[in-house]
Amino acid sequence: MNQNPILSLHPLTKFYFAIFITVSVIIVPNYLFAYAWFPVLIVIAAMAKVAKSFISFILKTLIILLAIVFLMQVFFYPGEDVIGSWWIFELTNEGLLQGLSLTSRILAIGSAFILFFRIVEIKDFVKALEDIGMPPTGAYIVLSTLQIIPEMRRQSNTIMEAQKTRGVETEGSLIVRAKAFFPTLTPLILSSIASTEERAITLESRAFSAPGKKTSLHKLTKRPIDRVLPWVYVGIIIGLIIWRVFL
């Protein structure tokens, strides 16, 4: 069993936490509040021993987007209060505020979910969703997709290699490269589709559509903390709403 205090939480406890952050930054308009979540998330990531991959992930996926979003607001957001200028652009105070507010939220929500996917096993998350009512077919689709994607990636690489040896050009001008796309993808699609009939028969042979309740060998445990934490989130959200509306 996993002893790590963060990793050993129930998948839904982790998921609700990401939702909680999302809702909180929507309720509270202050960008400092939204930015403040980021260090908190780093601490949690460190506790879960995923800080390194978490941060490098953020750097790879979020930073450029945040920079573009920020600059676009600063320069193009309509506003009167000009606080500076650069070349043909005018820097407005409204733009600056809009830029901070948008980026702070994208950072908070984006990194909350990035962290979520670092600390949860997809298989466990799917099981958790199944436990709260997602149909077993949905679980089947997700799990089988996760198995099929790497399989088809491998096949597409093989096909591309084969094409090169048969003289289909994968380098050169745009037209040449574009022409290689269709013969790569089509056989992959056709062969995968051709196998579905037999896959269906396999599943039927394994009582896929048998009526009645199914057993699951894969079980998730809910500890007391997993029952308490979601209510803590709800409590804080209610608190924030009251604070917003009445104060």
């Binding site: 997709t145 990636r153 597409s156 574009a178 269906a200 599943l203």
Partner: peptide
């Protein structure tokens, strides 16, 4: 059942299509 089994394939095609377009 056949439609259900088509879904993972379609999704994988979305990913592989993107990947091949990138490679090319």
């Amino acid at each position: 059942l056949l439609a259900i089994l088509l879904i993972p394939i379609g999704i994988a095609v979305n990913f592989v299509g993107f990947q091949v377009a990138q490679i090319l």
